[in-house]
């Protein structure tokens, strides 16, 4: 099955087809999945606060783990979301092992979003994330980047659900405020 697929143009196959071929042992098919989704996984890890080398290492480990458990991917969600969740969990575990994961309540003052200022503008997410505390950045990235629920994030981080929710809300408000400002500047300049 795997050998037959190498004769085809792998780039034309859907992720679910590639995953099925990879589940039958197809390394080349899985390589195509890695080629498609590695940038997204790495971007998520960087947005969660990983340095470039760590992001590369964790992304590699995440894809290897994904290959080993590819049979459990049933195509119910997207492959991209599935492998992002694996990568996010691996990164958090690595940080927890290093003792670098402490999710403490943030006492920073809230940054109120200007009412109605956000109008769907394209802005630099990476730049905006820099204005968040580490806890806010992690929680927002896990919820909106890795697609985890608040409960899942709380479980992974070992933090109370309420703490996670407040970090997410505070992070969203800050992002909205920054994005709103960016939008306003774009509108004024343009």
């Amino acid at each position: 099955m795997g050998q037959a697929a190498t004769m085809r143009d792998l780039t034309r196959l859907h992720d679910v087809e590639l995953a099925a071929l990879a589940a039958a042992g197809g390394r080349r098919e899985f390589g195509e999945l890695a080629r498609r989704h590695s940038a997204g996984v790495r971007a998520l890890l960087r947005r969660m606060g990983a340095d470039p080398a760590t992001a590369e290492d964790v992304a590699q480990d995440a894809f290897i783990q994904a290959f080993q458990s590819i049979a459990s991917f049933r195509g119910e969600g997207t492959f991209a979301a599935w492998v992002r969740r694996i990568a996010a969990r691996r990164y958090l575990k690595a940080r927890a092992r290093a003792g670098a994961l402490v999710l403490s309540p943030d006492d920073a003052p809230e940054e109120a979003a200007p009412e109605g200022a956000y109008a769907g503008a394209r802005l630099d997410l990476d730049q905006a994330l820099k204005g968040l505390s580490e806890a806010e950045r992690l929680c927002v990235s896990l919820c909106y980047g890795a697609g985890l629920s608040h409960s899942e994030v709380a479980e992974i981080l070992g933090a109370p659900l309420g703490t996670v929710k407040s970090h997410v809300k505070r992070g969203l408000d800050k992002l909205k405020a920054r994005m709103g400002q960016e939008t306003s500047r774009s509108a004024a300049g343009g």
Binding site: R28, G31, A34, R42, Q60, V140, S141, Y144, L175, K176
Partner: peptide, 27 residues
């Protein structure tokens, strides 16, 4: 806003990322 945020999170970072080299390393 949240929809846009999810969409933005799906986008890769701008700049050089050699996905082919990464895939070769994985293989």
């Amino acid at each position: 806003f949240e929809r846009d945020l999810q969409r933005l999170f799906q986008q890769a970072e701008p700049g050089g990322w050699d996905a082919d080299a990464f895939a070769r390393r994985i293989e």
